[in-house]
Design a protein around this nucleic acid. Structure first.
Lengths: 135, 135
DNA sequence: GTGTTTGCAAAGTGTTTGCAATTTA
DNA sequence: TAAATTGCAAACACTTTGCAAACAC
């Protein structure tokens, strides 16, 4: 099995050039279980994996991946951007004390009786965030 | 009717000294309809109303009001903090293009089948944000 | 080769902080 | 007068940007 081939395909399909940096970040993001990252977390992880990539490129890459639908951005906290590798419909616990997100499976919350979007707008996403703190 | 008396009472009840700045901000926030503000919006508004108050004090005041339950903070966008004068249970449309929040009445969305909070934590709030953009 | 992507450092935005001066009770 | 609050400016955290060098095709 050729290493990286799944990530190569993933990037090509998305219309992004499979550069060394994008491949390495894709591997970190999509190589295992679903996860929630901030730019800083991913950058640190890349360093530790001996992947030289600048923080600016990590930011660019996270946004590019989000634009092509490989990631989903979660507004859990007004001070930091979180990205989720699970782009399917589901919601989150936000552990305020740890600054950490946890998935809630999509079928564990019912959201219904949704109002229609305001005149002239379309719905981009529906986020349910349950903020919890230590007790 | 003594001007400001309702705001004096409101602040005293909340255990906050009714300073000139807090009174003026309370009047702007709670003197009319429910509203959503950022620190910058409120600061600008205070200037226009000829209330001299520093941006730092606006930030402090917004957080103090939030701590005592007069305001509620909404994480609608990872880049800016929004505060809502309506602290009752309800949800929001976030108009991404305008950076603006709109209330959705509490009874217009059902959220049920909620999972229990993770071990050792308690639920602080449940936010439903429907992100919409112009079409 | 040509256009894209990267890294760097600088700049930008929103927010918090330290501390002296001011205000409130 | 003692304690709380304010304003200022500096510091901070996170993010974006401009541009020359490096890379992908």
């Amino acid at each position: 099995m050729r290493p990286y081939s799944q990530f190569l395909d993933q990037l090509r399909t998305a219309g992004l050039r499979p550069t060394r940096q994008r491949l390495a970040l894709a591997k970190l993001l999509f190589g295992g279980e679903d996860r929630h990252v901030t730019a800083e977390i991913l950058h640190d992880e890349a360093q530790r994996a001996n992947v030289r990539v600048s923080l600016a490129t990590v930011y660019n890459t996270l946004h590019q991946f989000t634009d092509v639908g490989l990631l989903r951005e979660i507004a859990a906290d007004a001070s930091k951007a979180y990205f989720d590798t699970n782009t399917t419909k589901h919601h989150h616990f936000y552990l305020a004390d740890q600054g950490m997100l946890m998935d809630i499976p999509g079928d564990e919350i019912n959201v219904d009786n949704l109002p229609t979007a305001p005149e002239g707008t379309k719905v981009d996403s529906i986020d349910v965030v349950i903020r919890v703190s230590n007790n």
